[in-house]
């Protein structure tokens, strides 16, 4: 049975990059792509079999933090949710830690793609 992964990011480019890297880690993965927090919540409600939620922070409402809160309220385990973001602020990290979810920084340069893959791998291993 394949693994299902929901990617919520308003950037098509960011989704392409993320899908490419996740597929290297989980070759059998099946993706669902959405462009907003609202669509992510609707998708989660309609598909109870999603294994992983990778959420951008700065996207069309609700943002990734609020979407995570609502997913947790729906009973989805924190270990299955990660915020994938370019935002490096300490405040955001604190919010993620308070919710018990993982914060993964996006790769900002080609040199960091390996590091980005490792960060995702760690998240999947923990979950």
């Amino acid at each position: 049975m394949s693994t299902k992964c929901l990617i919520a990011d308003d950037s098509l480019y960011a989704r392409l990059v993320l899908k490419d890297i996740v597929q290297r880690i989980l070759p059998e993965v099946e993706f669902q792509e959405v462009g907003s927090g609202q669509q992510a919540l609707e998708s989660a409600s309609a598909n109870a079999d999603i294994d992983w939620f990778l959420l951008d922070v700065n996207m069309l409402p609700p943002d990734g933090v609020e979407t995570s809160r609502q997913l947790l309220a729906q009973g989805i385990a924190a270990s299955r949710i990660a915020l994938v973001t370019g935002n490096r602020s300490g405040h955001l990290l604190e919010e993620a830690e308070e919710m018990g979810i993982c914060l993964i920084n996006k790769a900002v340069s080609p040199d960091d793609v390996g590091g980005f893959m490792e960060r995702l791998q760690t998240f999947f291993n923990k979950g």
Partner: peptide, 13 residues
């Protein structure tokens, strides 16, 4: 737009 997001991600910090 994604460049703006990533670039400003550092600035925000």
């Amino acid at each position: 737009a994604e460049s703006l997001n990533l670039g400003l991600g550092h600035v925000i910090e």
